[in-house]
């Protein structure tokens, strides 16, 4: 039996838990601290918390809020959103988080990855990549919630991340966010073939079967948002997570 990490992603607009579709139409879900407490009880593998409005609103990470959440998170905990400096990263680790997720600031400052991974170890430095299809149907790397293009090709950018000491790639597909249309397995394979850095698949998961398929497409771990905060596609809010038996039967024993 081989275990893999199955990771709920909580997106927040400052202190409100919300869920988007294609990074738009944020739907209010509830209190993120309450969600973390429920995920504790469900013994989730890890949590990624992303403040999706921090960069847009030019806000620093909301440290007191993150500290409060951390004090209730008895699993590995990653935070992303509004991080631009090594001082902020130091502060976040002091609060008890395990990983920082960097995105919009990296294109102009690859050295931040190096600086941070030299101090905290590369395993704690996650780079989130937001993929979005252009009008020709080809994937383009974007930043600032998909509003700006990254000027590098996919391969060049990922090679640069690797060179600078990134520890994990959080692969997110904007076109599939909140759509339940399944992960883009070709893209997962393509990215995993470019790099030896572990790839976490996100964007479009519709069931536990998606997780298994992503791993079989060379992802090292899987993540999802809607799947873990809604009850099916009817969108009733229900914080949920598969049991260990389900994970073993439907993933761990099949990969």
């Amino acid at each position: 039996m081989k275990r893999i990490r199955v990771i709920p992603v909580l997106t927040v607009d400052n202190e409100k838990l919300v869920k988007t579709i294609r990074f738009k139409k944020p739907n209010y879900i509830g209190d993120p601290i309450n969600a973390v407490k429920i995920f504790n009880n469900k013994e989730v593998d890890e949590i990624v918390l992303l403040d999706i409005t921090a960069t847009k609103e030019k806000r620093s990470p909301n440290f007191s809020f993150i500290e409060e959440i951390c004090s209730e998170a008895f699993m590995p905990f990653a935070y992303g959103g509004g991080i631009t400096s090594i001082q902020q990263i130091e502060q976040l680790f002091k609060l008890g988080i395990e990983k920082v997720v960097l995105n919009s600031c990296i294109e102009d400052n690859f050295n931040l990855i190096t600086e941070a991974s030299n101090i905290f170890g590369s395993q704690s430095i996650v780079i989130s990549l937001d993929f979005k299809k252009n009008i020709f149907g080809k994937y383009q790397l974007t930043k600032e919630s998909g509003s700006k293009k990254i000027q590098y090709s996919i391969e060049d950018y990922i090679k640069k991340l690797e060179l600078h000491g990134a520890g994990e790639i959080f692969l997110n597909v904007i076109d599939r966010d909140g759509t339940y249309q399944d992960y883009d397995y070709n893209l997962i394979s393509e990215v995993a073939n470019i790099t030896t850095i572990p790839v976490v698949a996100c964007g479009g998961a519709h069931s536990i079967e998606s997780f298994k398929n992503a791993i079989n497409s060379s992802a090292s771990a899987v993540a999802a948002g809607s799947l873990f905060v809604y009850r099916g596609r009817t969108k009733g809010i229900l914080i949920n997570y598969p049991t260990q038996d389900q994970l073993s039967e439907e993933i761990f024993n099949k990969i």
């Binding site: 004090s71 008890g96 395990e98």
Partner: peptide
């Protein structure tokens, strides 16, 4: 690095 998490859980 992981002191805060240890303190949190002990608490």
């Amino acid at each position: 690095g992981n002191v805060k998490s240890v303190e949190n859980m002990l608490k």
